[in-house]
């Protein structure tokens, strides 16, 4: 049981089915304090499903989920979450969005929110950290996508959650903003000593951001030699520690990094499997865009 205490997230033999459709299969995972664990996988492999299980939004069909030593029941303040869309509350200003956690957890929703200078100072400090102190009175619709995600980060951090979960948080941003926010997140992770579970379908992003890289995929070589079928659940097919390469801003120029990505690609998405991916892609034109586009980029 000791390991449960050290591990922020502990998943034990998780399986998730929707009716007959198996989405996740046999997931064992522990994320320890201070890790920035990046989970990468093609669209539809069950990343968001895994996130919903960790949040407690849905129960697993089988297995246990333990956060900081206690089993998960429903979403609560022990996990912060940042989604790709709908990350802010449109009816609240930036400052109110960031203060919201403090206010809601004070419990007295039926009274006007109390004026609390401690909360205000804290919110301002986080807004400063996400470089938005001069936009505090704006509404979300007045902000760019990148700014919105930065507010969302401040909003989640003010609760000081033991784990911060992010589901493709930068997926909707343009490449420059995206890179900017990736660096920003790494900075924040290092200074604040956060534990982050970061989901993306972009392998390059996962390698760049993560201190640890997990590949979730439903395309794996099967022990029983079964041929690929659509009803297979995603499994964690690769798990790398990236401590040595990450945290350097020059990482993208580094040739080792590119070699590394191709290694991951070979092991995580081996060529035979990738053929399946392409076949699948033909039938589901939207699903693998990023992976294939990104693949071309790395190989050229």
């Amino acid at each position: 049981m000791d390991t449960n205490k050290i591990n922020k997230i502990y998943l034990q033999d998780i399986e998730k089915c929707y009716g007959d459709k198996r989405v996740l299969d046999n997931i064992d995972l522990s994320v320890s304090t201070g890790e920035l664990c990046a989970l990468v996988g093609p669209s539809g492999c069950g990343k968001s499903t895994l996130l919903r299980l960790i949040l407690g939004q849905e129960p697993p069909t089988k297995g246990n989920i333990i956060i900081e030593g206690s089993p998960v029941s429903f979403p609560d303040h022990n996990r912060g979450i940042i989604f790709q869309k709908y990350s802010l509350f449109p009816h609240l200003s930036v400052l109110e969005n960031v203060l919201l956690g403090k206010r809601l957890s004070s419990g007295r929703w039926w009274l006007p929110w109390p004026k609390n200078n401690e909360w205000l100072d804290e919110a301002m400090a986080y807004l400063e950290q996400v470089r938005l102190s001069d936009a505090i009175n704006k509404f979300p619709y007045e902000l760019s996508g990148g700014m919105q995600q930065r507010v969302a980060i401040a909003q989640a951090l003010i609760m000081k959650p033991p784990v911060l979960l992010m589901d493709e948080p930068f997926g909707a941003l343009d490449p420059d903003t995206r890179e900017d926010l990736q660096l920003f997140l790494l900075d924040l992770w290092e200074t604040e000593k956060l534990t982050i579970f970061f989901i993306t379908h972009d392998l390059e992003e996962a390698c760049f951001v993560g201190s640890r890289l997990l590949v979730l995929s439903q395309y794996y070589s099967d022990d029983r030699g079964e041929s690929y079928n659509v009803n297979r659940g995603g499994k964690i097919v690769a798990d790398y520690q990236l401590e040595s390469v990450v945290s350097s801003t020059e990482i993208k120029q580094n040739t080792n990094f590119k070699d590394f990505i191709s290694t991951v690609r070979e092991e995580g998405f081996e060529p035979r499997v990738r053929q399946h991916v392409r076949d699948f892609n033909l039938h589901h034109p939207d699903s693998f865009q990023t992976l294939t586009a990104e693949e071309n980029r790395v190989h050229n």
């Binding site: 949040l55 979403p75 303040h77 996990r79 979450i81 869309k85 919201l100 809601l104 929703w109 609760m159």
Partner: peptide
């Protein structure tokens, strides 16, 4: 969106 409700729960809302 359901995400807003989940998010409020993670922010400590009843």
């Amino acid at each position: 969106p359901q995400q807003q409700i989940v998010k409020s729960l993670t922010l400590g809302a009843s």
